[in-house]
């Protein structure tokens, strides 16, 4: 099974947000960046899926070299390799989804995990936009997931309960808290991460 997990880096949630001159971005000086909290559930699910079904896992991030830091955490948690999709400046959800869809469309992925929402711009859209642009199925805000042959059954959180959703592969799954308990990278994982393969496009 070919498994991807897409991660974004976001300001640490305790950060005071300052708006930069021009008013279109935040002032990044002194801000520390972390893996988007929901992406940790996505990473864990990707690692678990490979442990169960075999295959390969790749962590994909759109951005610049500073994203490597957070991608390294995914590698330390057990993802096999990294792919950085280079983009200059700040992209909106549609821009990020366009780059991800271009990669995923012809990449032969069976399943793509993402967080349900990135806690910077909070749009909750990148999973659905990417899946639609790439022609994949998609189930969002998942709190449980079962993969069986070529189909998936997931439970997604809705107001007052859960929906049980069925779909086929390939599929984009967006993770909600409760999907699993993300592991902490151990020392061996952290050491191994340094030797793992990196690619960068373009």
């Amino acid at each position: 099974m070919k498994i991807a997990v897409c991660v974004s880096n976001v300001p640490d949630t305790a950060t005071k947000i300052k708006i930069s001159a021009g008013g279109k971005e935040i002032d990044k000086t002194g801000v520390s960046f972390i893996v988007n909290p929901y992406d940790e559930f996505a990473i864990e699910e990707a690692v678990k899926t490979k442990e169960k079904f075999g295959g390969e896992t790749v962590v994909i991030s759109v951005g610049d070299d500073s994203n490597k830091e957070i991608m390294r955490k995914a590698l330390a948690m057990g993802i096999d390799s990294g792919l950085l999709l280079k983009a200059d400046g700040t992209l909106d959800s549609d821009g990020v989804a366009t780059l991800l869809a271009d990669e995923i469309k012809d990449g032969g992925y069976d399943i793509v995990f993402m967080g349900k929402q990135s806690v910077d711009f909070d749009t909750s859209m990148v999973g659905q936009l990417t899946a639609t642009k790439a022609g994949l199925n998609c189930i969002t805000v998942c709190v449980s997931l079962t993969i069986d042959n070529n189909s998936v059954t997931a439970e997604r959180e809705i107001e007052g309960g859960r929906e049980v959703v069925k779909s086929g592969l390939p599929v984009v799954i967006t993770a909600q808290k409760g999907l699993n308990d993300p592991r902490y990278p151990n020392l061996k994982g952290i050491m191994d991460a340094k030797r793992k393969n990196w690619k960068r496009k373009p």
Binding site: I139, G160, G161, E163, V164, S167
Partner: peptide, 19 residues
């Protein structure tokens, strides 16, 4: 109908905070 909801599991008798 490639992606469908087969069932809704309601949290029993509870009002959801979101609503």
């Amino acid at each position: 109908l490639t992606t469908t909801v087969s069932e809704i599991k309601r949290a029993e008798g509870k009002l959801d905070v979101a609503e």
